[in-house]
Nucleic acid binder design. Sequence first.
DNA 1: ATTCTAACA
DNA 2: TGTTAGTA
Length: 145
Amino acid sequence: MNPSIKKTEPVFSISTAARLLKISVHTLRMYEREGLIIPYKKKSNQRLYSQADLDRIQCIRDAINQAKISINGIKSIYSLIPCWDIIKCSAEEQKECASFNGAHNPCWTYDHKNVCKERDCRTCEVYTKYSQCGTIKELIKSVSR
DNA sequence: ATTCTAACA
DNA sequence: TGTTAGTA
């Protein structure tokens, strides 16, 4: 409601996020364990969610409830994002990268040894670019053709 | 009062 | 997915 707060600003506690999304805090933490989301962490280790996080999670909920896609299915979809092309890592780095070589999990769930090491996956375009339901569908279409 | 991790009569 | 335990 406050226009001065950016959609990417982590402001919602896990209980507030759960209430707004109508899901349990347990489910919220589970999505994180599965590597579907990367909430902001305070130094106290407590999670904070931005409006962008909420939007992303709602897309995940829609994929599960409407499209009937499983958690593993969503992870597989995310793994298809061409991260190497988006962040343009070198051929050497691609050779060493699991994400470039048929990984079935999102790139941000792996240990990074290349240029990704200096990046914060939460704010990386690879993670944020396909956070909207529409863009995820476009990705699915482009892959299924 | 809230959140966190880990675990399961 | 739920719930409980023991913390911070």
